[in-house]
């Protein structure tokens, strides 16, 4: 009995010491991290999605730090305090390892709560941030309000976005071997090699391909969506302040895959409007020759008479039902 109670006071004593070390180290490490590292963690804060990605990474890290220190401190403490004594001549002279129901239960509860919290947190982030910048396919489950309206209007050549309007801006990303081009249904359906988007605007990227599978990866925007032929893969993000970003193809797509990248810009709404209208005018002659804006385009791989194109008419593309509405025929 005496021995037993000695033991328990001893345990409390050890636990208190370990807990104290653990709390101090974890708090100091998390504070240092949040001051010196967290603001610089990729992908930065160019869009809401990117900013939330950064926050998620930081939350994960700051939760992982106490777990890491918990394990390290317990392990080091055990080795140093309860380990075999150096000058002992017995086969097993350290303290005997015993089960402790309280410790086991606490461990299981704490780790389960941590993991479940992160799962709930991740799910919340996914829904609240409208898919968190990932491609959601042709019928997005997490669309921001106004997206469907803007996208439907885009399909019939109507613009809903203008500076200050707070409306969703649809931008089409067309991948082909080996370059991305961008169509702006809001600006007459013009196509451009440049990707410029306005600040403080929710963008609906409609990603598709004219040949093989590519992947549109605008890292600093927190957006990544596969580009599949005949599929409209929609990804949302909301831009914040002006800044630069890089678009890369992240699906191995052939000989020039490594060169399949371009720079992009988030510009102020006024600058964007200026660029877009200037480019629309400059490209008007070519825009008139483009196929009507559609969610997907179907180039014919075989074609008639040995050609690679379907028929040489102005509509070498077929219509595919996506995003809840049929394309105009």
């Amino acid at each position: 009995m005496t021995n037993q109670s000695d033991n328990s006071t001893d345990q409390v004593h050890h636990l208190r010491r370990m807990t104290l070390m653990w709390v101090i180290l974890s708090v100091v490490a998390d504070i240092l991290f949040s001051i010196f590292v967290a603001p610089h963690v990729p992908p930065g804060r160019l869009t809401e999605t990117a900013a939330k990605d950064q926050t998620d990474f930081n939350v994960l890290f700051e939760m992982a730090v106490p777990v890491l220190f918990g394990v390290w401190i317990y392990m080091s403490y055990s080795l140093i305090v309860w380990g075999d004594k150096r000058n002992s001549n017995q086969a097993f002279s350290g303290d005997a390892a015993r089960t402790n129901m309280k410790t086991q239960v606490s461990w299981i509860v704490v780790t389960s709560v941590t993991v479940l919290f992160l799962a709930a947190f991740g799910t919340y982030a996914l829904i609240v941030d409208h898919g968190s910048g990932g491609g959601e396919g042709p019928n997005p489950a997490f669309a921001p309000s106004g997206a469907l309206k803007a996208e439907t209007a885009a399909l019939v050549g109507k613009a809903t976005w203008s500076p200050g309007s707070k409306n969703v801006l649809p931008v089409q990303v067309i991948a082909q071997q080996w370059k991305f081009t961008y169509r702006y249904p809001t600006f007459g359906g013009m196509e451009s090699s440049q990707l410029i988007v306005p600040a403080d605007t929710t963008i609906a990227f409609n990603v598709t391909s004219l040949d093989v599978i590519h992947s549109f990866w605008a890292y600093q925007l927190g957006v990544k969506a596969d580009a599949n032929p005949q599929v409209n893969n929609v990804a949302f993000t909301t831009t914040k302040d002006p800044g630069n970003f890089i678009v890369r193809c992240s699906e191995l797509c052939g000989i020039w895959h490594g060169s399949m990248f371009n720079n992009g810009k988030v510009e102020s709404q006024a600058d964007f409007e200026n660029w877009a209208t200037t480019t629309e005018a400059a490209n008007a002659a070519n825009t008139a020759l483009l196929p009507a804006f559609a969610w997907t385009y179907t180039p014919d791989a075989n074609g008639a008479a040995g050609g690679y194109y379907p028929d040489g008419t102005q509509t070498p593309y077929s219509t595919v039902e996506t995003y809840g509405s049929k394309q105009p025929s």
Binding site: S193, N283, Y308, Y309
Partner: peptide
């Protein structure tokens, strides 16, 4: 020749004088 898969490339781009 034949029609372009993407008429975007029918437009001269990036040259002096465009």
């Amino acid at each position: 020749g034949s029609p372009l898969r993407n008429q975007e490339w029918g437009q001269v781009q990036g040259t002096i004088g465009s």
